[in-house]
Computed example of a mutant assay.
Amino acid sequence: MENEMLLKLGISAVLGLIIGIERELKRKPVGLKTSLVISIISCLLTIVSIESSQIFNKGDHITMDPLRLAAQIVSGIGFLGAGVILRKENDSISGLTTAAIIWGAAGIGIAVGAGFYPEAITGVVLLIISVELLPFLITILGPRQLREKELILQLKLADKHNIFDTTNSIREKNITIKNIRIKDLDTNELYIRMKVSVNNQRPTTEVYYEIQKISGIRSIEVENV
């Protein structure tokens, strides 16, 4: 029985390591050490929960739910996941994938702790495919909307009458304008903020240089959403 527990912890550590390496390669907040801790400790608590229920059982009557602690892991891990979700200045949300992977690492640990080895291994394989391979395939084979990325353009125009010509010039460069905000500045210039979409394969620097060539634009700032 002790060897089986050590095997479970070992398998959980290996699977957590795989998840952690994937996050580490992308320089995400939750990296190798965090994924290992989540996976191993989730597995350990699941083992403790199952073993405790067997120890405290009286005859054929179950006095303790075997997965009571595991159920608390699933809800408790949400606190850690919420800490990596960030709202940027442009109102975009980041960190959702990392938060989901935290939850996934806990689930893998629980599955291993409960003895579902093939299911846990399959879960990790599918998880890595989902966050690595599928996004790559979608950028090549998916519908147009999924093959595009969004950018925020902030422009300053010297002449208010250049708005129509400027927006038309931007569209001619295969840039889709999704929404636009226009504001008068005290310097008699015009401030324009646009959310645009371009092909995923198109470098942001290329978009910058293309827009910079448009006459009438005094300054430009490009930001990935």
Rank of each mutant, 00 (worst) to 15 (best):
G81S: 02
G83T: 02
Q72L: 06
L157F: 10
A71M: 09
L141W: 13
I110N: 01
I214C: 15
E2N: 11
A106H: 01
K195Y: 04
T176Q: 08
H161K: 15
L67I: 14
E206W: 14
G115M: 08
K149R: 10
L67A: 13
E4P: 02
F116H: 09
A100E: 04
V74E: 05
V37R: 01
G76E: 11
I110W: 00
D65H: 01
G81W: 02
I108Y: 00
E22G: 03
E22M: 08
Q201W: 14
K88S: 12
A100F: 00
K178I: 11
G10F: 10
K178M: 12
N57A: 03
E148V: 00
N199Q: 13
I170H: 10
L69N: 00
L9K: 00
Y208E: 13
I18G: 12
P203A: 09
K195L: 11
K26S: 07
K88Q: 08
D165K: 01
V84N: 06
V196A: 05
V225R: 06
V14N: 07
I192C: 13
I220T: 15
D60E: 14
I62P: 04
Y117K: 09
P29D: 07
T98H: 14
V222M: 03
I214K: 14
R27I: 08
K149I: 05
I101Q: 01
A106C: 05
E51P: 01
R218K: 13
R171S: 13
L9Q: 01
I152H: 06
K156G: 04
D184Q: 13
I217D: 15
D165W: 09
D186K: 10
I85V: 14
C43L: 01
F116G: 05
S219Q: 11
T176G: 09
L45N: 01
Y208W: 14
E221F: 14
N168W: 05
G216A: 13
V196T: 12
E172N: 10
S49P: 01
T46K: 03
T205A: 12
T46S: 02
G104K: 02
N174V: 01
D159R: 11
G95K: 15
H61R: 12
N188L: 14
D159N: 13
A111E: 03
G113H: 09
S92P: 15
G123N: 12
V198Q: 14
I220N: 12
G107P: 00
K58Q: 10
G104D: 10
T122K: 08
I175N: 05
G115A: 11
E4H: 13
I129Y: 04
I73H: 00
R68N: 07
N168I: 08
V112Y: 00
S42P: 02
L126H: 12
E119I: 11
L190V: 12
A105Y: 02
L36E: 03
I93S: 11
I152T: 04
G78M: 06
A105M: 06
W103D: 03
R202S: 07
S169M: 05
E51V: 00
R171K: 06
D165E: 08
K195V: 11
D159G: 02
T166Q: 13
G10I: 07
R144C: 04
L17W: 08
I175L: 07
L9V: 06
I182N: 10
G83R: 11
H61E: 08
A82R: 10
T139L: 07
V125Y: 06
L153A: 02
G78D: 09
E221L: 15
V84E: 09
R23K: 02
G142D: 06
N199G: 11
A120M: 06
I21W: 05
S215N: 15
